[in-house]
Amino acid sequence: MGLLVKYLLVFIIGGVLCAIAQVLLDKTKLTSARILVIYVVSGVFLSAVGIYSKLVAIGGCGATIPLLGFGHALCQGVFKAVDELGFRGIFTGGLGAVATGIVMAVVFGLIASFVSKPKSKIQ
């Protein structure tokens, strides 16, 4: 039962976080870029006040994979670096914690620009 419940929670928490963004997208005139910014900034602050870690403990990847989790990683990275390095850590911790995702995306983007072409989708 443990595994099933765990995966169900991952699914529900991940799904709900995405569905909330969809409500903002459909119901407000906010552009998708703005909503993504709101998400990442919210993630940082929710993480700073300790709420997001609780959500990660319940939802696992359901909480870390959505963009809020990106904000959470930024925040926790900064906290950890401040603990280890003091003042300097304020500036090194954030990007350090999310470097994997960003650097991978940049490298894949560069590779894709060489090997693949955008296509128009015909309906």
Binding site: V37, V44, S47, L74, V78, F79, G89, G93, V98
Partner: peptide, 18 residues
């Protein structure tokens, strides 16, 4: 925009934490 506002707000909470 996600990176600009994500890292900036992380610096802000980092400063407060410090």
């Amino acid at each position: 925009p996600v990176l600009v506002y994500g890292t900036s707000s992380a610096v802000l909470v980092g400063l407060l934490y410090f």
